[in-house]
C-alpha cells in the first residue's frame, strides 16, 4: 500500500494501465468519435466525441496513449500537438452550445515538445483552453487517470471537479526534468518525485483535486461501472446549479488554491 512517490510515477506510466479509450468504452455507451480541429489536422493523441452516460448525452474527451507499439506511435505516446488541444476546445464549445456536460480523461506526460508544435502555437493553444474552460457555460469534470504532465494536462483540467486515480500523478514538471534542472542530474528523479508532492494524496491535501479514486479492480467492468455511477451523480449535482453559480464556483475553486 505505501508506495513511494516514484513507484507511483512508474505505475502511472505503466503500459498495463487502462488508457483513455478503455475508460470511454467502459463508462459510456453509444460513443461516437468526432475528429479534427477544423484548422490543421486531427491529433490522434486526443480522442473526443459524444456518448451517453446512464442515458444522458455528454461530451467526452480523452488523451489516449494507446496499447500496442504501433498504436502508441500513431498517438504520439499521448503527447498532444496544438491541434489536439484545439480539437478538445472545439468539442467543448459544441457541448456548451447544446448544454451537454463535459468529461475529460487526462493521461499525458505533457504537451509535445517539437518544432511543428511550436510553429503552430503549443503555448497559445493551451492558453486558449485555460481561458475558454474557465468560462465554459456547462459543467466540466476532469479525471486524471495516469500521468498529469504540467500545462499539457491542465489544458483539459480547468474543471468544476477534478478527480484523480489513486496511482495517478500530477506535476508541474517531470521528476527527471526537475532533477536535471535543480541538481544537474536526471538520475535523482526519485528524490525529485518525493519533493514535488505529485501523488493523488498530496493533490487532495492541497485542495487541487476533490476525490481520489481507488484502484481496486482497476480496469474491470465493476471498476468502470462504479466510476461511471459516481461521475453520473456528480454531473447531476453540477447540472442543478445555475450557470452563474457554476462559473463563480469554478472561479473560486482555482482562486483559492494555495491561499494562506
Amino acid at each position: 500500500m505505501s508506495m513511494t512517490s516514484y513507484e507511483r510515477v512508474k505505475a502511472a506510466r505503466s503500459g498495463d494501465r487502462p488508457t483513455g479509450l478503455d475508460y470511454i468504452h467502459g463508462m459510456f455507451t453509444d460513443f461516437l468519435e468526432l475528429h479534427g480541429d477544423r484548422r490543421f489536422a486531427d491529433d490522434r493523441a486526443v480522442v473526443g466525441g459524444i456518448a451517453r452516460l446512464n442515458g444522458r448525452p455528454v461530451t467526452v474527451i480523452a488523451i489516449e496513449k494507446g496499447h500496442t507499439v504501433r498504436d502508441r506511435m500513431a498517438r504520439n505516446f499521448g503527447m498532444p500537438h496544438p491541434e489536439g488541444y484545439r480539437k478538445a476546445l472545439r468539442l467543448m464549445q459544441q457541448a456548451e452550445k447544446f448544454h451537454r456536460p463535459v468529461v475529460c480523461l487526462v493521461d499525458t506526460s505533457g504537451a509535445y515538445c517539437g518544432i511543428g508544435a511550436e510553429e503552430r502555437g503549443q503555448g497559445q493553444a493551451i492558453a486558449e483552453n485555460l481561458t475558454a474552460m474557465s468560462g465554459l457555460k456547462t459543467p466540466i469534470l476532469s479525471i486524471l487517470i495516469g500521468e498529469g504532465g504540467s500545462g499539457g494536462a491542465l489544458a483539459l483540467a480547468v474543471a468544476d471537479r477534478v478527480w484523480m486515480l489513486e496511482n495517478a500523478v500530477y506535476s508541474v514538471i517531470s521528476p527527471e526534468g526537475c532533477a536535471s534542472i535543480l541538481w544537474k542530474d536526471a538520475n535523482r528523479a526519485e528524490e525529485a518525485a518525493h519533493c514535488l508532492k505529485l501523488t493523488a494524496k498530496d493533490a487532495l491535501s492541497m485542495g487541487i483535486v476533490e476525490q481520489v479514486i481507488s484502484e481496486t479492480d482497476l480496469g474491470t467492468p465493476v471498476f468502470f461501472e462504479t466510476l461511471s455511477h459516481r461521475v453520473c451523480c456528480e454531473l447531476e449535482r453540477l447540472s442543478e446549479e445555475t450557470t452563474e453559480r457554476l462559473l463563480s464556483k469554478r472561479y473560486q475553486r482555482f482562486r483559492t488554491i494555495g491561499q494562506m
Binding site: 481561458t131 504540467s150 491542465l154 480547468v158 500530477y170 508541474v172 514535488l196 487541487i208 482555482f254 482562486r255
Partner: peptide, 13 residues
C-alpha cells in the same frame, strides 16, 4: 509544485 501550475488556471480565469 502543483500550486504553481494552478496559477496558470487562476490567472487565465
Amino acid at each position: 509544485g502543483l500550486v504553481s501550475l494552478m496559477q496558470m488556471a487562476k490567472t487565465s480565469a
